[in-house]
Each structure stands twice: as structure tokens, then as C-alpha cells.
């Protein structure tokens, strides 16, 4: 077997880290747009009007069954065609990251809508009734009473969704995006395939570290937010 060089792992990590911002940008973009989408979907399901709810249900069910790589390819090959034939816009030369953002916005939106919806529904409706009974408008009751409490409940699930997004996002290199994974495959081909294992291990270490970072940060956030609450076991 060809030699395994553990030191190469450290070397390669420093070659990969400069591309971390690409990964982060991709994640933050997807979180932002995905959360907006998720809010719209969650609202459709909660409000209960038939057609919006049906559309939201179908969308979420469909995306739940879609492997990320499949969606990525559909967007990558399909979006330019679609835009070309409907509104005549040629996006074939646009930065690959757009396709990645679209894909993961669609995916994250589906996950987030469920996170938001279950968090909102877990808050005792009595809170809302009390708010209405002292004269708050439904809008005020939502933003001042229901939403803050929902956020606290949603936080752990949001953290999980974020980690999953980051892991799914690692597939972006398959459409040619040069993020950390993309750079990794370039490094491997530069070395004629000889240090593949070391490179992959380096990438795994980076991703693992990021996951732990996110988990710890959310742990701190959750503790901070429960300053006024008793734990579940009361």
C-alpha cells in the first residue's frame, strides 16, 4: 500500500481553511433565505386555510423525500434551462454558488418550517388568550408573547438543522463549487490521487470541529435563554 503520511493531514488543513469562508457564506445564505421560506410555510400550516396549507404540506413532504444531491443536480441543470425558456435569462455563467444557495434554501426551508411550527404549537394557547384578553392585538400577541417563547423551544432543533445543513452543504463540490471540499478534490488531483485519504481525514476533522463548535455555542445560548424557566422535570 502506498505510504500514509499523517503529517500531511496538518499541512493540508492549512491549505483548506482559506476556503472556510465560502462554506460559511453558503451556510449563512441558506439559513437566511431558508428561514424566510420556512416562516412562510409554517404560517401556511398554522393558519389552516386550506389551499396554502395543502401547498405547504406537499412542498414539505416532497422535499423531505429528496436526497440533497439529487436536488442539487436538478437545480444545477434545470434552473438555467427553466429560466432560459421562460424569461429568456441566461445564467450559465453565473457563479456556481447561486445554484448551491437555491438548493439549500429550498431544503432548509422545509426543515425550518417544521422546527418553527412545532415550537409555536408547543406554547400553551392560554398565553395567547391571556394576551388577547388584556387588549393586545393578535399581531402584538404573536410578536411579544408567542414568538419569544417559541424561539427558546426551537433553539435546539434549529441547532440540529444547522448542523445537518452544513453536512449536506458539503455536497456542493459535486457541481464544481470551490469550497473546502472542492479545494480538497483539487489538492487530491494535484497530487495525482496519492494523498486522498489524508485530505479526506483533514476535511473530516474540520467538519467535526465545526459541528462541535456549533453544538457548544447553542448549548450556551440555550442556557442563557432559560434564565426564567424551570426545566421540563418539574
Amino acid at each position: 500500500m502506498r505510504p500514509f503520511n499523517p503529517w500531511f493531514i496538518l499541512e493540508v488543513i492549512s491549505d483548506l481553511l482559506p476556503y472556510l469562508p465560502v462554506t460559511i457564506f453558503m451556510i449563512l445564505g441558506s439559513v437566511f433565505f431558508g428561514s424566510l421560506l420556512g416562516f412562510v410555510l409554517a404560517r401556511a400550516k398554522v393558519m389552516g386555510r386550506r389551499i396554502p396549507k395543502l401547498l405547504a404540506d406537499c412542498y414539505i413532504a416532497t422535499l423531505r423525500c429528496t436526497p440533497p444531491i439529487v436536488l442539487l443536480f436538478i437545480v444545477y441543470y434545470g434552473l438555467p434551462e427553466l429560466l432560459m425558456s421562460t424569461i429568456g435569462v441566461n445564467i450559465n455563467n453565473v457563479n456556481k454558488i447561486i445554484f448551491v444557495l437555491v438548493t439549500f434554501t429550498l431544503l432548509f426551508g422545509a426543515t425550518m418550517s417544521e422546527v418553527m411550527r412545532t415550537a409555536y404549537e408547543s406554547i400553551d394557547k392560554g398565553q395567547q388568550e391571556a394576551a388577547l384578553s388584556i387588549g393586545l392585538s393578535p399581531y402584538q400577541a404573536f410578536y411579544r408573547i408567542m414568538l419569544p417563547q417559541s424561539v427558546a423551544v426551537a433553539l435546539p432543533n434549529f441547532g440540529n438543522a444547522l448542523i445537518n445543513l452544513m453536512k449536506d452543504g458539503s455536497l456542493a463540490f459535486t457541481v464544481g463549487l470551490i469550497d473546502m471540499m472542492g479545494q480538497g478534490t483539487l489538492i487530491i488531483s494535484r497530487n495525482f490521487g496519492s494523498y486522498a485519504l489524508e485530505t479526506y481525514i483533514a476535511l473530516a476533522i474540520i467538519y467535526w470541529s465545526l459541528t462541535i463548535l456549533i453544538e457548544k455555542s447553542f448549548g450556551v445560548l440555550e442556557m442563557h435563554l432559560s434564565k426564567g424557566k424551570k426545566s421540563v422535570a418539574e
Binding site: 471540499m181 473530516a204 459541528t211
Partner: peptide
């Protein structure tokens, strides 16, 4: 659980 399955 902390690494993407594609890497695994």
C-alpha cells in the same frame, strides 16, 4: 454524526 456522510 459530526461529519458529512459523503466524507465517510
Amino acid at each position: 454524526r459530526g461529519t458529512p456522510i459523503v466524507l465517510q
